[in-house]
Design a protein around this nucleic acid. Structure first.
Lengths: 136, 136
DNA sequence: CGGTATCCCCAAGGATACTG
DNA sequence: CAGTATCCTTGGGGATACCG
């Protein structure tokens, strides 16, 4: 499972295999800012500065890195206008739009189930003897 | 947006805000092995060693860490039988089952769109002047 | 069997400063 | 405005060894 040829030969990818490149795709999706970036671009293209302000806490460098990776993987297009001052628009590709729905569901789920998760954490952290023993 | 009280007061979580704890939930989902673990547990509970073998390339330490975090966040339960040798089962909670569907979709999407992503990467990396210039 | 405990590495990502 | 360039810290995660 090393090449596209292998994928065709074996009839599909399997993320449970160490050598399957779908692991790399999962890593991109899991990277810190990806979910928020593609979510922000669902409605319309955005300029770099808009994204920078929309994603509270992101740095220029981190945003640039994330956008480069998304561009490389075919999720967003980068359009640079040769004006002064420069203007750069980022827009989802069809591939990006298709994944954006899934990632949006994840983001929404995190927001909707946040209270339940926080409660579970509080319960876990409050256990008598710490992260160890249990009553069998 | 610091406490559960705040969430109620403001009427919901917003992952675009730096201080919103839903960011932490997204991080868990994005961690390297989470998607594969919950995917493996959808059908049935599994023992530690089964998971270790199912997730090609994971180490004992990484698997233990990931399972602890999933347990803490209320996605899985850990059941330890006081036998010799010890036996430990991991099982999805109702909360875990609900998120497992979403994460499974992500994994499937990564596998199904892998070829297209690899092609996009090849195109990007093959650009004449490298990751820089573009024709305006 | 199902863990901990240690050591180690390196890559993600933040802070800051500079530029076309 | 939209980036690079540089430095630096943190911690995720691998390898290995030991334990109840």
């Amino acid at each position: 499972m090393e090449t596209i040829g292998d994928l065709r030969k074996f009839g599909g990818a399997d993320a449970y295999l160490r050598s399957c490149p779908s692991r790399g795709v999962l890593d991109v999706i899991g990277s810190k800012w990806t979910v928020l970036i593609v979510g922000a671009l669902i409605d319309r293209p955005m300029r770099f500065g808009e994204l920078l302000r929309r994603l509270d806490g992101v740095t220029q460098k981190s945003l640039t890195q994330a956008l480069r990776q998304l561009e490389r993987d075919g999720f967003v297009t980068r359009t640079q206008y040769p004006t002064i001052p420069p203007r750069v628009d980022y827009e989802l590709t069809p591939l990006g739009h298709r994944v954006a729905g899934l990632l949006g569901s994840i983001r929404d789920w995190a927001q909707e189930n946040l209270v339940e998760v926080l409660a579970a954490r509080a319960r876990y952290d409050a256990r008598p003897t710490g992260p160890d023993v249990r009553p069998a």
